[in-house]
Computed example of a mutant assay.
Amino acid sequence: MSTQTVEYIRYRIPESRTAEFLAAYTRAAARLAAAPQCVDYELARREEGTGEDTGDDAHFVLRITWTSAEDHLKGFRTSELFPGFLAEIRPYIENIEEMRHYAPTPVRGTGSALPSLYDWAGGAAAFSRLTSAFYDKVLKDDLLSPLFAGLAPEHAEHVAVWLGEVFGGPTTYSDTQGGHTHMVAMHAGKHITEPQRRRWVNLIQDAADEAGLPTDAEFRSAFLAYVEWGTRLAVYFSGPDAQPPAEQPVPKWSWGAMPPYRG
Rank of each mutant, 00 (worst) to 15 (best):
S2R: 14
T3A: 15
Q4H: 13
V6E: 09
V6A: 03
Y8T: 13
R10Q: 14
Y11F: 14
P14H: 04
S16Y: 09
S16N: 04
R17W: 06
T18R: 07
E20V: 12
L22H: 11
L22I: 12
A23G: 11
Y25I: 07
T26G: 08
A28Q: 07
A28L: 01
A29E: 09
L32K: 00
P36S: 07
P36Y: 01
E42N: 10
A44C: 10
R46N: 15
R46I: 04
R46Q: 14
E48Q: 15
E48F: 13
G49Y: 14
G49L: 13
G51L: 08
G51K: 11
E52R: 11
T54W: 15
D56H: 07
D57L: 07
V61S: 07
L62C: 01
I64P: 03
T67I: 10
S68A: 05
E70P: 00
D71S: 06
G75T: 00
G75V: 01
F76C: 12
F76A: 05
R77A: 06
R77M: 13
T78Q: 14
T78W: 11
S79L: 10
L81P: 02
P83Q: 06
G84C: 10
I89A: 03
P91G: 03
P91M: 00
N95M: 04
I96Y: 06
E97D: 14
E98A: 03
E98V: 05
M99A: 15
M99P: 14
A103L: 14
P104L: 03
P106K: 05
G111M: 06
L114D: 13
Y118H: 11
D119G: 14
D119C: 08
D119F: 07
W120L: 04
G123K: 02
G123A: 10
A124L: 08
A125E: 15
F127Q: 03
F127E: 04
L130E: 09
T131A: 05
T131C: 08
S132W: 10
A133I: 01
D142I: 11
L144A: 07
P146R: 03
L147S: 06
F148H: 02
F148I: 02
G150F: 06
A152F: 03
H155Q: 05
A156F: 11
V159L: 09
G168T: 14
T172N: 14
T176L: 09
T176P: 01
H180C: 13
T181W: 02
T181P: 13
T181D: 15
M183Y: 05
A185H: 01
H187K: 04
K190V: 06
H191T: 02
H191G: 02
Q196C: 08
R198D: 15
R198L: 15
N202I: 14
A208G: 13
E210M: 04
E210F: 02
A211Y: 09
G212A: 11
P214G: 06
D216Y: 00
R220M: 04
A222M: 05
F223D: 09
F223H: 08
F223E: 02
L224V: 09
V227R: 01
E228F: 04
L233E: 07
V235M: 10
G239I: 05
Q243V: 06
P244Y: 10
P245Q: 12
Q248L: 12
Q248F: 08
V250L: 11
P251F: 05
K252Y: 12
W253T: 03
S254V: 03
S254K: 07
S254C: 04
P260Y: 04
Y261K: 00
R262A: 04
G263D: 01
